[in-house]
Design a protein around this nucleic acid. Structure first.
Length: 275
DNA sequence: CTGCGGTCCTGAAGGC
DNA sequence: TGCCTTCAGGACCGCA
């Protein structure tokens, strides 16, 4: 599931490949993935235009064009592949951008949950999902005091707080589990119950886990099929401590890692060293 | 306003 | 071996 580190990796790789390049035309095989605009208009604003800039906001990838910005959300199984030559046809190929010089950017998505939208505002505020996003956890603005204020805004279950995109942008189920493990905090704790030391540990864990995951180019799990643009797997899954490891020994204390369901999502933690 | 659960989707994996 | 059921989950939507 492309979360902040995976989308950031894709963004950085796209910089080298397509920044300043012109999209000659595009093929759309699955029109229902285009959400907020007609197919004709979607093509009209993209074909013939140059990639002016590439941004990430939360889990959204943003390609700035001349008159519009292309907004991509990968959901669980969406991925982009950069190719010099035509790839063999695939059931999960839904969209192909053809660049000048023959390069292709191919969007594949097994479950077809991904979304393509066009934004016509400089701050993307016409895209509701982006407008509602909370703070970027790797930005300068994400200070300890800011984080404390966010925690105080509601007495929420901590795991649900971390994946709430309107509070902090970009953390999904996987990284929430890893962050809570690093901070040694139980996922069912309430935001208002955290002590000063725990708040600091959590704040540090958010930044460290996300940065480390970006360093390793994201996490590739079998089910999600995330891969970097060049078709390589990310490397952070080798450093996962708890996610999808129910029944295995905790790497810290050797207790058995448990799985519970919170907010309809699998939540993995060590019942002994996460308090 | 809040919180909960349903919805979308499809291949893999598990059970009998 | 083969068929059927269950599972994975981000964001959105509707309802109580």
């Amino acid at each position: 599931m492309p979360e902040l580190p995976e989308v950031e990796t894709i963004k950085q790789e796209l910089f080298d490949k397509i920044l300043g390049k012109k999209i000659n035309f595009l093929e759309i095989f699955t029109p229902e993935l285009i959400k907020n605009i007609s197919l004709g208009d979607f093509k009209k604003y993209i074909a013939g235009e140059e990639i002016k800039d590439i941004l990430r906001r939360g889990k959204y990838l943003i390609l700035k064009l001349k008159k519009a910005s292309l907004i991509i959300h990968f959901r669980m199984t969406g991925k982009l592949i950069f190719a010099k030559n035509k790839l063999p046809p695939s059931k999960s190929t839904h969209l192909i951008f053809y660049f000048e010089g023959g390069d292709q950017l191919i969007y594949q998505d097994l479950r077809k949950f991904g979304e393509f939208k066009l934004s016509f505002k400089e701050d993307f505020s016409d895209i509701l999902g982006i407008k509602k996003l909370g703070i970027e956890p790797l930005s300068k603005e994400f200070r300890l005091e800011t984080f404390k204020a966010l925690l105080k805004s509601k007495n929420a279950n901590l795991k649900l707080f971390l994946i709430d995109q309107t509070k902090i942008a970009g953390i999904g189920n996987l990284y929430a589990c890893e962050i809570l493990f690093k901070a040694k905090i139980h996922p069912q704790r309430k935001t208002l119950s955290l002590k000063e030391g725990e708040i600091q540990a959590l704040y540090q864990a958010i930044k460290e886990i996300l940065k480390k995951a970006i360093f390793y180019k994201g996490s590739s799990l079998r089910d999600e099929q995330y891969q970097t643009l060049g078709g390589k797997l990310g490397g952070f899954q080798k450093h996962h401590q708890v996610y999808a490891k129910a029944g295995e020994n905790c790497p810290r204390c050797k207790s058995i890692i448990q799985k519970i369901i919170l907010g309809q999502r699998g939540t993995y933690f060590c019942p002994n060293c996460q308090e």
